[in-house]
């Protein structure tokens, strides 16, 4: 493994780990959401209603998608940056 390949591998690993850290930081939800339910007290009747509010929640699906794309790009780059042996080194 040459220096460029090592850089690709380390960068890819960092992206995957970072996406998992972000997923955990958002609460470890399975699916990405753009709306969440919040409780709101109805002052007139004294009960609690649920309301949808716009809020982005990073899900595991997004982390897996990013990880998959990173893996494909990294594999392609590892292939591109592979060490090309000179014809004299082949024999």
């Amino acid at each position: 493994m040459n220096k460029k390949q090592k850089t690709v591998l380390v960068t890819g690993s960092i992206v995957v780990v970072a996406s998992l850290i972000v997923w955990l930081a958002y609460g470890g939800e399975i699916f990405t959401k753009t709306q969440v339910l919040v409780e709101k007290k109805d002052e007139l009747f004294g009960w609690t209603d649920k309301q949808w509010v716009n809020k982005f929640v990073w899900g595991l699906d997004l982390s897996l998608l990013i990880s998959a794309i990173t893996a494909v790009i990294s594999a392609a780059l590892l292939f591109i940056f592979r060490s090309k042996k000179k014809p004299s080194e082949l024999s």
Partner: peptide, 8 residues
């Protein structure tokens, strides 16, 4: 019906 995820 709304579950917070459009696909669902």
């Amino acid at each position: 019906i709304n579950t917070g995820i459009e696909l669902r």
